[in-house]
Each structure stands twice: as structure tokens, then as C-alpha cells.
Design a protein around this nucleic acid. Sequence first.
DNA 1: TTCAATAGTTCATAAAATAAGAACTATTGA
DNA 2: TCAATAGTTCTTATTTTATGAACTATTGAA
Lengths: 133, 133
Amino acid sequence: MIAAMRPLFHPSIEDVTVEAILHALSDPVRVAIYADIVGSQCSQSCSNFLKVSEKAIPKSTLSEHFKALREAGLIRGERHGVEMLNTSRCAEIEKRFPGLIAAIVNAHNVQMKEKTRAGSAGKHKPMRRSARK
Amino acid sequence: MIAAMRPLFHPSIEDVTVEAILHALSDPVRVAIYADIVGSQCSQSCSNFLKVSEKAIPKSTLSEHFKALREAGLIRGERHGVEMLNTSRCAEIEKRFPGLIAAIVNAHNVQMKEKTRAGSAGKHKPMRRSARK
DNA sequence: TTCAATAGTTCATAAAATAAGAACTATTGA
DNA sequence: TCAATAGTTCTTATTTTATGAACTATTGAA
């Protein structure tokens, strides 16, 4: 059986839902990627994050993250030569859901700043209380 | 083995993360519940939604949804007699992440209005393209 | 008091979603 | 034509989520 590699799917803006956007951005890796794409004027390639990330995220995982952002309607991915360039669709989303993206990206930045401060002050970050049985 | 039924856990506002908020609100049932709690002045009991919801969500599922909202820091649940009253923590969140809650609730309302319009106009809603193999 | 009713919570497990190594596709440049 | 680069897709293990069943907690009778 031959794998298809169909052209990337992008939902039209009317099919974009709040739930899908929030879900896509509820992952720390994805929100970081997205904030970076929104923040930078030029498009970002997938592999940028592969190299930049501290934790060496597997490329299949990164690919799935980009797919999640794409299918939520947050980014548009276009192949340019050998690499994929990703651009944010924030102008379209802003029309449909005013203020949403700005508020999320801002909240993400607030949180990042706190983390940095906590780190530099030697104060250990409040740990993630999971696995509470 | 006796089940503990420990008092409900509420994170302190500094431990609330954007990711947890977005994840909690990325579920259609939860965002509907939350929008309702934020919208109404008075607190809402869990069972309100049990009765109101069209699809008869099982009470264990509803309980888990309230737990998710609570542990994300979005609501506070207090027992009043036999029932739990849930209030939004949006004032606290607004301080930490300005505009976030308003933008999400607004986006949710935008989407709800669209659905209503589509329904009344007989236009069938664009279907959820899942299971794209 | 004890008991039934109400309003949940917690447990157990089935079903769905996610992560990541391996294999594959697509494009470019030698 | 072939190797290199940059992803995508497949497969399977792990994690998460949903829900019926069993349990807890509070109230208001009898």
C-alpha cells in the first residue's frame, strides 16, 4: 500500500471553531510554535523548531503539532522547495473572533515572563500537580 | 476500600496556566457551562446543566467537566447544602491574563449565534471533518 | 434517630486521542 | 541517477477521556 501524501488540508475560515483553536493552543509546544509564528514577520519552517527546541522533539511529533495548528485554522503551510513555510492566519481569525488571538498570545507571553523571572530569582517554579490520586 | 471524597481542589491563581485554561475550554460542553456561569450573576449548580442539556450528559461526565474547570482555576465550587454552587474566578484571571476570558467567551457567543442563524435559515451546518483517513 | 431523596464524587474499564520510531514521499542539487 | 534535506504517514504503546456502577454527604421527613 502506497502512502498518499495528499496536499495539506486547510479549513475555510467559516469552518474554524473556538474549540479547535483552544485545543490546538492548549499544548505548550504548539502555543510556543504559534506565538513564534505570529511574532515573526516572515514564515517559519517546521525544522526551525526542531533545531531551536531544547528537548529535541521528534520530527514526527513536530509534524503532528504543525498539522494540529493547520487543521485548527491557525496557520497556513506552503511548500517552498524542500521545506514547508508556515504563516499565521491571524487576520482572518481576528475578523471572526476579535481579540481572541491577541489575548491568548499575550497570556502566553505573561506566563513566559513569569517563568523567566522565577528561574533567574532561583525561586523554584510551582510544580505541575498531576497524578493526584 | 473506602472512597475518600476529599475537599475539592482549587489551584491558587499563580499556579493557573494558559494551557490549562485553554484545554479546559476546548471542550464544547465545558465552554458552554463556563460561558453560562460567567454570564449569570448567581452561582450555578452542576445539576442545572444536567437538566438543561439536550443530550442528557451522564452525571459522572458532568462531574468530571466541572472538575476540569475547577482544576484549571476557572471556577470555584462550594457546597451549599445538598448541592454544589459554582462561581467563576474571572476577576482573578483577568488580573493575571487580561482580556483572555472576555475574548474566549465572546468568541463562543459569536459561534453560537452563527449556529442559531444557520439552523433557522435551514442551512445545514458545515460538518465536523474528522476521521479524515 | 433512622431512612429515603437529592446531588454529587469516585472507581473501574472501555474507547478515543496522542507520541514517537520506522518507513515512506517530495524536492533540490551535485 | 543519486544522496541529502525536510517533512509526512504508518504502527503501536501510552495517556486521556467517557461513562455505568458504587459510593459519600446533606437534608428533610416519618
